[in-house]
Simulated scan of single mutants.
Amino acid sequence: MSTYADQRVLVVGGTSGVGLATARTFAGRGADTVIVSRSVDKLDAALAQLTTSGGKASGRTLDIRSDDEVEQFAATAGAFDHVVVTAGETPMGRVDTLPLTEAYAAMDSKFWGAYRIARAVRVKPSGSLTLVAGHLSQRPGRASALQSAINAALEALVRGMALEYAPLRVNAVSPGLLRTPLWEGLDDADRERMYEAAVRRLPVGRVGDAADVAEAVIFVAGNAYTTGTTVYVDGGGTIA
């Protein structure tokens, strides 16, 4: 498919998980895909995957926590047809036990990182900006109040920007539990128990993967009548 032929797409955090799946999907549909990441090693590995599969992709290092780096990137990157922000580090922890330094860092990474990109990077008015949030905005857990708040803030930001940036379309995609490298830090047995519990709870009867979310991003980027909305890709997690 060449749905995005002759279009430039930026995927922030496009080196693993949802970001890499999204970059792969855009590249596979003909887009000139640019991925950015803080890690040179991850960037090189992701680009090897994307180009091996025949996609047109390039990459640059970028720390979205830095005002200066984002401004410099935006000044030299040119305009994009579609921008997707998937990056963000948000540690788990109760409000009364998570150190404030980590809480501030989480907000600076996922919320302010997306805000910096939305503020500085040029997107063509006929295109789209998509932020990846998370279904914890609607379904908080016992150790995820901060994550819930950050995701909810991103969804609210999208609604406001859809009005401010119109006719540019601005949307959010909020995933539920996924089989991604995000959980590699868990013990194997604990991770599998978490997945098995989700399979029993979720109406779809399975845990999602990064490709499920990538398809949702492709939908909101390509649908000219969708803006200011949040698409939940959570297997029914918000209702189960």
Rank of each mutant, 00 (worst) to 15 (best):
M1P: 09
S2Y: 06
S2N: 14
S2M: 12
Q7H: 12
V9E: 05
V9F: 03
V11K: 00
G13R: 03
S16Q: 11
S16A: 12
S16R: 11
L20R: 00
A21G: 04
F26A: 05
G28A: 06
G28M: 09
G28E: 10
R29F: 07
A31N: 09
S37M: 01
R38S: 10
V40H: 11
D41A: 14
K42I: 02
K42D: 12
K42H: 13
L43Y: 09
L47D: 09
T51Q: 15
T51W: 05
G54C: 08
K56D: 13
K56V: 15
G59I: 03
V70T: 07
E71V: 15
F73A: 01
A74S: 13
A75G: 14
T76Y: 07
G78K: 05
V84C: 08
T86D: 02
A87C: 07
A87F: 03
R94N: 12
D96H: 10
D96C: 06
T97A: 11
A103G: 10
A106Y: 05
M107C: 11
S109I: 11
W112A: 05
W112H: 07
A114T: 08
R116Y: 11
I117K: 02
A120Y: 11
V121N: 09
V121T: 08
V123C: 03
K124M: 12
S128G: 12
L131Q: 07
G134V: 04
G134T: 09
G134A: 14
S137F: 03
R139L: 14
G141I: 13
G141T: 14
A145C: 08
A149N: 08
N151C: 10
L154G: 00
L154Y: 05
E155V: 14
A156V: 06
G160V: 07
M161E: 08
M161R: 06
A162F: 06
A162D: 07
E164D: 15
Y165I: 00
L168N: 06
R169P: 04
V170S: 02
N171P: 03
N171Y: 06
V173I: 13
P175F: 06
L178N: 06
L178F: 09
R179D: 15
R179L: 02
T180C: 10
L182S: 09
W183V: 06
E184W: 10
G185R: 14
G185D: 15
A189C: 01
D190A: 13
A198P: 05
V199W: 05
R206Q: 10
V207R: 01
G208Y: 01
G208A: 12
D209N: 15
D209W: 10
A210N: 03
A211P: 00
D212Q: 06
D212M: 03
A214G: 08
V217S: 09
V220I: 11
T226A: 13
T229F: 01
T229E: 11
V231N: 01
G235F: 04
G237M: 08
G237C: 03
I239W: 15
I239S: 15
I239E: 14
A240M: 07
